[in-house]
Design a protein around this nucleic acid. Structure first.
Lengths: 260, 260
DNA sequence: CCTAGTCCACTGGTCGGACCAGTCACAGCT
DNA sequence: AGCTGTGACTGGTCCGACCAGTGGACTAGG
């Protein structure tokens, strides 16, 4: 501890150590912010290195160091000679996602853990979304609800897909890549579940209606900006939703599944 | 698909596209290999940039780009003016950890979510550890058990720290940076809990004994290589352990905490 | 008209040199 | 012995240059 240094003065506010921010870090931050804001989307191109030199008003070496960081984070990819400039990669190629997929694929995360994972992340995501959502996003979310209601009359598979779209939107609104990654991975697992075990839940119209009701409550809470309430409802909903995938579709079974 | 191109020839081995390997990538690989081999250990220092220029026989720009990649992966950290050169950091995961810490710090993950997070990760970690552990690591794990037993006679704080050491080791054995990161973040939260709410659990010798017993069972399962059993016991243990931090230290309260 | 080939502006990768502010170890002083 | 000033060296940034490679425009051929 460095309390010894401050013990002599014993007055004034406690300051924390500062470290200089490097120019290339600033560039990385700006690019990632633009990505989070939506000003930059996967598939789009970054200006060429020499153009970035002009925009950021730094040397090319600095720009390149920033690009190396972005590249190692899976944000962009540069190809020599490409006149279009560095490519913004789809989110699915990020280093974080690869790790999670690796975990999920080799069964290091079991089904129950993935469900718990989504439950936790969903709660966090919805909490964040309550704070960050724009009126337009709220409207989109409400449209998803309409789609879910319509899907009930089709089949459970359609309903599940609408539910996935709902959570995709929540993750998107949260603007947090960790949340987005979790959502992505769990999405893959859920999709495989739909094809495998859907038989257990085909005739669960009541379940779908209940789930829809929960989703509507979540949207209400998001509209009101009450993050905690939204997260609580979302978790409750998770129970009910995934209960549809286990042989005995009741809440206690899922609870046991999670706890085992 | 590009089967159409090959359909004409319909012979010979299928080749995959190649892309040039950059010099800075080669450097990154060499450093990471040295780290994996054990020739380079955390705490040690890399030669200075100018020295690396001589060893790799590339320009300083190239060395620096490689260092930026390593830095963004959390492998090394450079400090201006440090005559010792870049420092090898404990384990590799910078961006990932920052995201999780950011999540945890701004309360986007609440306490209950973090507890759930650890519970899940712990299960996964222990499962992986059961497969990967070496005899030496198993011996170390058993030593940690001895330390925990001794800590019971000191106080709850000491016991908690020994418990943290146990989970650190599990995470280390898992060799999965995602697990390690989760462990790191939760560790920070647990440490803050120890100072804040430890009063509620000071006189819980029985709780500590029970926890110790669980840990011993986990080690038994790891020794036997039964990953699923180990994970199950670990989760059970999580309930009991964190129950010590909530005002009413019983399992049902925690269960409610997690579910709410 | 369309196609196939050529060409060239421009890209990213690498190089080597330079300057600066900051750090640390050590020599010299008190 | 303890303190202090200094200097060698560090990483951060900049500049200008060269290269191999790319892809779009342009042209010659069908």
């Amino acid at each position: 501890m460095n309390t010894g240094t401050n013990a002599g003065t014993a007055k004034g506010p406690r300051f924390r150590p500062v470290q200089p921010v490097r120019a290339y870090q600033r560039i990385v931050e700006q690019v990632e912010e633009a990505l989070a804001r939506g000003d930059l989307a996967p598939g789009q191109r970054l200006p060429s290195e020499r153009e970035l030199v002009a925009q950021f008003e730094v040397s090319r070496s600095t720009v390149r160091e920033a690009l190396r960081v972005l590249e190692s984070n899976g944000v962009v990819r540069s190809r020599p000679g490409d006149p279009n400039g560095p490519e913004i990669l789809p989110f699915s190629q990020s280093a974080l996602r690869k790790q999670m997929v690796r975990l999920a694929r080799v069964d290091e995360l079991t089904l129950s853990e993935l469900i718990g994972f989504r439950m936790i992340m969903d709660g966090a995501a919805i909490q964040v979304a309550s704070r960050l959502r724009t009126p337009e996003q709220l409207a989109e979310l409400e449209q998803t609800l309409v789609a879910m209601r319509a899907a009930i009359d089709v089949d459970f598979e359609a309903f599940s897909e609408a539910d996935l779209a709902f959570h995709d939107m929540i993750a998107q609104i949260s603007r947090n890549s960790l949340i987005q990654t979790c959502n992505e991975v769990v999405r893959g697992v859920v999709l495989s579940l739909i094809s495998d075990k859907v038989a257990h839940a085909r005739n669960s119209r009541a379940l779908m209606l209940e789930s829809l009701q929960h989703h509507a409550e979540v949207v209400d809470a998001i509209r009101a900006g009450d993050g905690h309430a939204a997260a609580r409802i979302a978790r409750q909903n998770m129970y009910d939703y995934y209960a549809g995938y286990v042989p005995t579709p009741d809440r206690d079974t899922l609870r046991a599944l999670i706890e085992d």
